[in-house]
């Protein structure tokens, strides 16, 4: 089973009375146990595509299957549940709640699923310990460095044991060394045969962490490469 399968995906956005097509006929499969990178220049449609693949946006045309479930006719509420239970997210700007501690932030998907805060935070703390954040669970985001905050975001993406991890520019706000450390964690996660990691990036310093690179341009998937074969 593929983690994600999408066929002939198109997406239109209304602009005034017109509709503008930003994705054209995109098709690919994302394998489990791999890190797949989606690369391309700004504005090429990467963010729109991962929004569709993670059930946040709905495709105007085409079929999407995530972890065996078709998103094409899935109701919005069920997409929310799918995201909550089977998809983990890592954002460029971390998007941590400033009033919650690292462990509480990481516990968010569990709390959304109904788990009480103390129990959820305890489980999140174990994940944080596993990614080099021992003893940092009670700190607030403002007390953490950028790299540490991104690790909290990684813990948040892992805490509910999802099959698909979607990362949006996970190293964009980090320096090179910290970015590589974060990517090393994600690389370990991708080695799990039950998980797929999909990374959107245009940071060419991290391409070597990928198993596979999908290149986009002007709303189209224009290439499918092994990292060492990708010319940038």
């Amino acid at each position: 089973m593929h983690a994600v399968s999408f066929r002939n995906i198109a997406k239109d956005f209304p602009i005034g009375d017109d509709r503008v097509r930003v994705l054209h006929d995109c098709s690919a499969d994302i394998a489990l146990g791999q890190m797949t990178m989606l690369v391309g220049p700004s504005g090429c449609g990467k963010t729109t595509l991962i929004s569709i693949l993670s059930g946040i946006l709905t495709a105007s045309e085409g079929e999407v299957t995530v972890l065996g479930q078709s998103l094409t006719r899935m109701r919005d509420h069920h997409k929310v549940l799918l995201r909550r239970e089977r998809i983990g997210f890592i954002f460029q700007q971390y998007n941590l709640l400033p009033a919650l501690t690292a462990a509480e932030n990481a516990a968010m998907p569990l709390m959304a699923a109904g788990m009480k805060l103390p129990e959820a935070a305890e489980r999140a703390r174990a994940i944080l310990d596993g990614i080099g954040m021992q003893g940092q669970g009670d700190k607030l985001p403002r007390q953490l460095s950028g790299g540490q905050q991104q690790r909290v975001a990684i813990a948040r993406a892992l805490v509910h044991n999802p099959g698909l991890i979607v990362c949006d520019e996970p190293t964009a706000a980090l320096d090179a060394a910290t970015g590589k450390a974060v990517m090393a964690i994600l690389r370990d996660i991708a080695n799990d045969p039950g998980r797929a990691v999909l990374v959107v990036t245009h940071d060419n310093r991290i391409y070597n962490f990928a198993d596979r690179i999908l290149e986009m341009s002007d709303g189209r998937l224009i290439g499918d490469f092994a990292p060492d074969a990708f010319q940038h």
């Binding site: 995201r83 968010m108 998907p109 959304a112 948040r156």
Partner: peptide, 16 residues
């Protein structure tokens, strides 16, 4: 709003 959006993205419902 950004935090609420992140919460929605990770599966927090409108009801929550």
């Amino acid at each position: 709003l950004k935090q609420f959006a992140a919460m929605k993205a990770v599966g927090v419902t409108n009801g929550q």
